[in-house]
Design a protein around this nucleic acid. Structure first.
Length: 304
DNA sequence: CACCAGGCGATTT
DNA sequence: AAATCGCATGGT
């Protein structure tokens, strides 16, 4: 038995290639690295960084620790993390049945077969990314994230490559407006990030606290009580981190673009039309949003 | 110089 | 509740 290897069985309708395509779609991501058919990143195990490499085939995901053998504890944490990240516990068959019933979307079942809604298991990371990405184009958003991570985060070396983690929230909470400006963050973006970091540092917000709430409405309310987290961000977190199938990031520019290009609406402000469109997809709204985002890149996966 | 980008908060209706 | 407005900041 290899103590540095962990494997996870795959459900049906799972394509590692499709998932990897999403992770590697030409953005300058700094919290993981896609290399030689796999993805590598640091996973936090009780405050300790563990570098792993994930590859996949038809049957399973293989997770190699690049940092020594797994312990029983790290095996559990990493397994849970990757299961969440790749959404391994979901049966996509019902979703594909719904897609087939809409002529405008049926092509997705073939073209994107096995694509999972790639999550952000860490709620702090999800919230930071929301704020960084608000109202700016994605290439610039990735630039900002890299500046923040390289300037204030935690990094480690492996075989000559540097791997990063976000700054701890205690660190982020103390970055000044001037320091944010130097990284080309707007004043409000910097303040919003500090607000989130403080909420974690002060114990007002944690994954456990969110999960303890009775329903998604209550979770959304707690999230939007933080200045800087609006409807879009709260729903983005519900979708990518808390795995709420019904979350829709209303107002999202990419979502609107996809709805327009599919002839589903003819006006971004047609709120009723959007709600009507999502109605038959009850419980799968977030998956539908993710597949609509996917459709914006017509690039197909090599070998499919 | 416009207009846009994975919006938000505050204000007004 | 729903619509509108001002706001930052860089990219195209």
């Amino acid at each position: 038995m290899n103590n540095a290897l962990l494997t996870l069985p795959l459900p049906t309708h799972f394509s590692f290639k499709e998932c990897l395509w999403f992770l590697d779609r030409n953005f300058d991501e700094c919290l993981y690295r896609v290399k030689e058919g796999g993805v590598e990143r640091i996973i936090d195990v009780d405050g300790h960084p563990l570098l792993v490499r994930i590859t996949g085939d038809e049957q399973q995901l293989s997770i190699h620790s690049l940092d020594g053998a797994f312990t029983a504890r790290s095996r559990k944490v990493v397994s849970d993390y990757v299961t969440h990240w790749f959404d391994l516990k979901r049966d996509l068959a019902p979703f594909y049945q719904l897609l087939q019933q809409d002529k405008r979307l049926a092509y997705m079942v073939q073209d994107f077969e096995g694509l999972r809604l790639m999550g952000i298991p860490d709620v702090y990371e999800a919230l930071c990314w929301c704020i960084i990405g608000q109202q700016i184009n994605l290439p610039f958003a990735y630039k900002l994230k890299r500046r923040l991570v390289e300037g204030y985060g935690i990094s480690m070396q492996h075989n000559g490559t540097t791997y990063h983690q976000l700054p701890a929230y205690e660190t982020l909470a103390q970055i000044s407006t001037a320091d944010f400006k130097a990284m080309q963050f707007s004043t409000s973006k910097g303040q919003y990030l500090v607000n989130v970091a403080r909420a974690f540092a002060d114990g007002q917000l944690s994954l456990a606290q969110l999960e303890a709430l009775p329903d998604m409405t209550a979770r959304q309310q707690l999230l939007t009580s933080i200045k800087g987290i609006g409807t879009w961000s709260a729903n983005y977190v519900l979708m990518k981190c808390l795995r709420d199938g019904a979350a829709i990031p209303f107002g999202d520019s990419g979502l609107n673009a996809a709805l327009l290009s599919h002839g589903i609406i003819s006006d971004k402000k047609d709120t009723q039309g959007i709600l009507r469109f999502f109605k038959p997809f009850a419980g799968w709204e977030s998956y539908l949003v993710f597949y609509l985002w996917r459709s914006l890149s017509k690039v197909t996966v090599p070998g499919k």
